[in-house]
Design a protein around this nucleic acid. Structure first.
Lengths: 221, 221
DNA sequence: CCCTTGCAGATTTTCGAAAAAATTATTATT
DNA sequence: AATAATAATTTTTTCGAAAATCTGCAAGGG
């Protein structure tokens, strides 16, 4: 059975990703305790974990805050993701077995299905598409057999997804995005290491590129 | 001013690295609270952070434990380190400035001094050598300008250092070890990227190699 | 004899309130 | 009127105990 702190942690993570708590704002114990229907102890424990995870910031005796979004920060996430995911993909392509390939094909299929005729105004389908996209990225490196790398990637994906909010309102070409992944998986299954790694690296910076192109960082970000 | 939980966190981290709490053993709230002179709340907060950091494990309603040491786990740490430190070193060598080079030379000097006539039976000097060694590795990638990569590396170094205990009792050739670092820094300062990255990658697995060579993993590790 | 069931003790988890620290408001002083 | 000092308020942090959960053992039934 799960503990109360576990539930609060998960609920908080979801809310932080969905922008329920505005970036830069304070996370007050009392209000959070009320919102998540728990005492201060489990809430504090959840926040402490999320702090080490990089999803909230903490200043001694001043409490927790939601980290601000900035171009610099997103660029850092992209760099870290590129470092981790390319290294992991290399290894996955060296040692990945049939089960890995199978999960990869499966994840790609779900992703493609959720991509079909997607419009960003339907929250449920958007949510499903995001989940499928992240799942595909996890599947890609799951063949590496490195628990630490997988955990790091998962955390970076969560942090990255905070920035997806900024993408709404921008017309995104999902066909191009889908083709990138299809081509990537194709190269991976063909065990064409250099091509696949190169595609992965360039794909990871796509969010940053798009946001740059639309001049999102007006406010000193 | 720092908080009680901060102090306990740091004390616990040090103790875990030094093997004060034996791997595989339980970390009981009451005993920890007494040892660190604090109530259960700060202790639990410290443990929660260390859990997200990967230094302790947690099973719901069963409390915290010290993760066991195993060959598989050390190999994972080495792989993750290689992925992170090589990528970071690449970037540091691209964009690192004079200040970075300076800190690098400085860290190398301290490391070499603490290496001189080192014997593993003097805890203080051993401690200083370890600190200097880790500092050198941090300095190497500090030029990358990526907060996330630096934090990940720092955590992996802490986790790695739990395994250093296994090295005591084994005669280590510190001269060879020292030369590895000297050569690495030389290649880095010469901005010879491929050579430096290659040396870094092979150096990181040295602990694993040495422990393998001496057959440390008798007990199903 | 083995397997379930129920209880006692130990331990983790959570709560509610006290203590400590920071923030805001107020008063005093130059 | 501006600054410093002090008081009041809010919020974080910590404590001590209650509640929930787990563990080991013994009794009862198949």
């Amino acid at each position: 059975m799960t503990t109360l702190a576990d539930n609060v942690e998960q609920a908080l993570r979801t809310d932080l990703v969905n922008g329920v708590h505005p970036p830069g704002g304070r996370l007050q114990m009392e209000k959070l305790a009320e919102r998540y229907g728990a005492g201060m102890s489990p809430v504090r424990e959840a926040l402490s974990r999320l702090y080490s995870e990089g999803l909230v910031s903490l200043e001694s005796n001043k409490g927790f805050r939601v980290p601000v979004l900035s171009r610099e920060d997103l660029a850092d996430i992209a760099f870290a993701r590129a470092a981790i995911e390319t290294a992991a993909l290399r290894r996955a392509m060296e040692r990945g077995d049939m089960a890995w390939e199978s999960s990869l094909v499966s994840a790609l299929h779900v992703y493609r299905q959720t991509s079909r005729n997607l419009d960003t105004s339907d929250p449920d389908r958007l949510q499903a598409w995001q989940a499928a996209h992240d799942q595909l990225h996890r599947a890609l490196i799951s063949g590496s057999g490195s628990p630490r790398i997988e955990k790091m990637q998962a955390r970076l994906l969560v942090q990255h997804s905070r920035y997806r909010q900024l993408l709404y309102g921008i017309p995104i070409d999902f066909d191009v995005h889908e083709r990138e992944h299809v081509d990537l998986v194709e190269a991976v299954l063909a065990r064409d290491v250099e091509t696949a790694v190169g595609m992965m690296a360039s794909h990871i910076t796509i969010t940053l590129d798009v946001l740059d192109q639309w001049g999102i960082w007006k406010d000193a970000g």
